[in-house]
Design a protein around this nucleic acid. Structure first.
Lengths: 145, 145
DNA sequence: CGTGAAACAAAAGCTCT
DNA sequence: AGAGCTTTTGTTTCACG
């Protein structure tokens, strides 16, 4: 993991569909060398995959919320993960410091759909109660790094 | 925006580096037809771009936080956006309902780096104070949809 | 939207350092 | 181990039906 790898990562972050020639040019390498580096970054797990940035508005998913989760007892992170991964509307979940046990980022079509999804979250055995904050407008959404 | 477009989106969400032949197979189309559809989805903005999923741990960015922002007066979303987009550590920002004015998702190398980045956030003229929650462990991180 | 041909990029080999 | 070069294979991109 050196400066060349970081250039390659910056390049595919900007455009995951870059050709190897383009990636190589960005990193100062030939196309085959760029492919070998990229393959290695995927193999070692530094790059977890390649995905598209979808305008969820265009797809009709217009309602977002951040949800603080308070648990019953002391569930392990793994238990929480198991209960949440079945709920498609939860796009991000982390255990956190502070009063709450976890923070969820949820995405739904509209308020009724969000309400119904939060309801499903609250039905999980380990979850006691939730506190939701509705997103009004999105200011920034950057690819990580 | 029909069922075929949705299949194409599902395919590039799973792997943004799919060939047009693969995308076409997933959507029941020939490769040139798949390319025309994908180009149209990018042109209309339904697909905002293609990016890589980076294991930020592997890159040494191991510290994440959610930061509630309280503003002075009533800044417009555009003003907030202007003040935040210069801070690379802010990966997501939204205005929200509830007591806070905005919610930030921040990513830093370590706690000192995070503290320094939050300090830069607090120096923005429109920002009064912040309340941070540190991420302990990441349970889920799904591509949207 | 599909087909076929030309231009182009990717994959796999080998060589060199 | 890692980079460059070259050939073969496969993909992209047209024009056309």
């Amino acid at each position: 993991m050196d400066a060349i790898d970081e250039e390659i990562i910056r390049c595919v972050l900007r455009n995951a569909r870059s050709t190897y020639a383009e990636i190589g040019e960005a990193a100062g390498l030939s196309a085959p060398a760029a492919k070998r580096r990229l393959d290695r970054l995927v193999a070692t797990g530094a790059i977890r995959g390649f995905t598209a940035l979808i305008d969820t508005q265009a797809l009709g998913w217009r309602t977002e919320a951040f949800v603080e989760v308070y648990c019953k007892g002391n569930p392990s992170p793994a238990e929480l993960q198991r209960d949440l991964e079945g709920i498609q509307e939860v796009v991000e979940a982390c255990t956190v410091s502070g009063a709450a046990d976890a923070m969820l980022h949820m995405l739904a079509r509209d308020i009724p759909h969000l309400e119904q999804a939060i309801q499903r979250v609250r039905e999980a055995p380990v979850i006691d109660r939730t506190e939701s904050v509705i997103v009004l407008s999105r200011l920034l959404n950057r690819p990580r790094l």
